[in-house]
Design a protein around this nucleic acid. Sequence first.
RNA 1: GCCGAAGUGGCGGAAUGGCAGACGCAUGCGACUCAAAAUCGCACGGGGAAACCCGUGUGGGUUCAACUCCCACCUUCGGCACCA
Length: 927
Amino acid sequence: MADKYVPQEIEPRWAERWENDQLYRSVADPNRPKFYAMTMLPYPSGDLHIGHWYAMTPSDARARWLRMRGYNVLFPMGFDAFGLPAENAAIQRNIHPKIWTYKNINNMRRQMRTMGTIFDWKREAVSSDPEYYRWTQWFFLQLYKHGLAYRQHAAVDFCPNCNTTLAREQVWGDDRHCERCGTPVIKKELEQWFFSTTKYAEELMNHDTINWPERVKLMQANWVGRSEGAHVTFRTEQGDAITVFTTRPDTLWGATFMVLAPEHPLVEKITTDQCRADVEAYISAAARKSEIDRTAEGREKTGVFTGGYAINPVNQERIPIWVADYVLISYGSGAIMAVPAHDQRDFEFARKYDLPIRIVIQPDGASDLDPAKMTESWPGEGIMVNSGQFTGTPAYYAADGKKNEAVGIVTAWLEKQGIGQGAVNYRLRDWLISRQRYWGAPIPMIYCDRCGVVPVNEKDLPILLPDDVDFKPTGESPLKHHEGFLNTSCPQCGGPAKRETDTMDTFMCSSWYQYRYLSPNYDGGPFDPEEGAYWLPVDQYTGGIEHATMHLMYTRFFTKAMRDSGSFANVAAIAQGMGRADANHLFDEPMLALYNQGMILGEPRDGDIIAAYGKFDGQKLIAQHIRVIAATAAPADAAVVGEVMGRKELTLDVITSDGRSVVVETDEKTTFDVPRVGSGAAVENIIYHLDVEKMSKSKGNVVAPDELVAEYGADTVRAYLMFAFEWSQGGPWDSKSIQGTVRWLYDIWEIVNTAAPVGNPDPKAERNLRRKVQQTVKKVSDGLETFGFNTAVASLMALRNALKSTIQAKNVSRAVWNESIETLLLLMAPFTPFITEELWGRTGHRYSIHNQSWPTYNAEIAAEEEITLVVQVNGKVRERIMVAADISEDEAIRLALESEGVLRHLNGVTPKKVIYITARGMVNIVV
RNA sequence: GCCGAAGUGGCGGAAUGGCAGACGCAUGCGACUCAAAAUCGCACGGGGAAACCCGUGUGGGUUCAACUCCCACCUUCGGCACCA
């Protein structure tokens, strides 16, 4: 018997050997097909989480598989190292963000080296390195020079907890909370830097050339929010133009008033003296209201009349202009024509302020709409009425439900009249990238009293982040108070000037890291064009769905902006020279394929069952003594017996067996009896019930991968994570079921170290084993192809079972056995790289298994020689017959009709029809 | 309200329209052991002695055949939402 499987001994040994040999170094080689695989890089929070393992190790298995299939695979890793937690650590614990960050990176790097991935550490990129953020700043300058970055004063989203502004994408949910910390955001008027993502709206919602999940494509398309309609220009009585966007130009004749957003620039001019006091009061009230209040569901609409009037260009009608906060300055032109009959919001407003409602679309069928009796608007289809020469025009949606025929007709007429034109509007906003925080890449701009806003010269990059800064959460950038950083000279006139003190959104750093990985030490540009020409674009990206409308939008925007800023034309030229047909599309999309894995949640657990003794104070029990007991043993003398559902400092929430909820309070005199703790137990030792939720330190449900690796080894942890969940789904951690994977690898160790079970070699048994092996080749290959890691590992476990049976039976030759073991190890190599490398050597093979070719599937060997013919009568299985796999249809049907089970169910009746399915070996007899 | 995804044993999960529950966990019984653990063997959706019946959220439908396709509904989760 060979020695035992000790992963703790094997794994570090191989990790070191691979590293010394640079086994996983990826070097560009135009003669070999490339595959750029990438998984989302982590934030250096301090410790590798089981979620990191869950995201990274299956991606690694797939990259390894591609490598064995002959691809030159690049699978790099790095750190998204700028960001708030570092700065918060500085504020709370007085550690410099840089020290905190790099200490964490070192630790996580160490942890990652235990995972057994093929990360090429020579290509590691760390976004907070000056060599990295130099290019983040350089990109800012390129965007600025190409008109894609601008500075604007606007009411922006501000997180009062993170003390910084946020991009629209980083404000989530009904309550408009900060994506990072969950605090509801407020509005602030600030001068901020923006990137013109809206210029790419159309391209961003087009995913035709990339293989991304439908879910992500849909979320992005919704986020961009394209609507088709027309711009129509109304005029005030004074002659000022008010252009509105409408998706329903066919309802123009029903516009009975106009509404401007409170922030609209024309409000002041239009407002008459009689109305001015009311309007100004309304505007200042609106400004004080939070976005949540303004947009709260079901909130009654409010507004005031300006006293001004506009002329409807289609019928010269004089209509009043109102101000109301249900019109948003940030969408369209901040002004609308109100058609109360056919828009629910306008309808509610008109009813409240008694404004006229005019029907211009009459639905057919039911009785005619009557403005006096309507209880809601009619936004649907019908015939145009009260609409001048268009009266009688049908306004119905085409079969696709999108185009309304009247819209096209009216828009064409508006264009001819010169009062409007077809237009497309997007919900997408420009990307606000200014952050009032220290730990980020400084925005490379300078403000000069004489020259205005001046970009830093490219040769002066990077603008280094100074170390000696005071971290106070003031809501202003700490850099603002650093004289040495703040004061500089103007690059244009040389006079005294001040630097921009805001830093860039860290999503900017992560928008281009796939490029920096190619050559993290290159100083002639963000990346070496030679490397780019070979590796780009990323072939397969994996990561969480939570970035659908943030990182995954930003990086697409970035790549397109890079393309259009023309800085990378040389990369395409080099790629052309390499003979790449897609050379001109290296920067159309950053990642050709995307796959989202799910999330590992905390392990659900029961709370302790306690018996509490004490006195009731109203509904609360003031406990003198608390005893943790077995679920079955309920002492009759206890005041409260039940499961602990929650624990808060000194109180326990208990649910009794009859379902009542009781609060048990403890104090310093309360005594505890917790069997597993012994004497000195305290309220903190009582375990409380935990539902499935995200892992968090405060919940105490965090699974530490280091501990798992120490106990079981990295191979087991990798294989378990791949086996136990459907990768895209994720789910709650289960600490018990890892045993199945533990046993699997112990079995593999035993099996491979066993001498070939040669007893009485039986040709049939040999064929069976070789067949099973080939079928496994197919299943594992298919599984890796489709991210079906769980079924791939399951088929490898099934092969283990077959090999164990073979050892029992001792009926295969040495050659067949060795061939099977060899294939088994190759198939397992992507999943469990350490044990397979060890066993590969022990079975007399040359180092390294990870440089071997993936087994070729042999369909002939995999083909069954015998099959179970399944015989159904009216779709119900009545008989199973073992037959030769190449049985003829006639023979199969004959056997089926003669079988006992069929005869019993036919009762002598002649079948109406007999169906034979060759591929399934199935007969269905219909009577 | 709009858009989308998902509902399968006690649990994680399998099933190109063709034998529902692969593989694993847990559980039960047995073997080994002085004993326990580990390991090995057997059982393991429900009912039934068996034949067989029922069973993939619910109700319909298409089909020789439906977890899978179609329609309606329920539940859960996710995104968007006064977006003109």
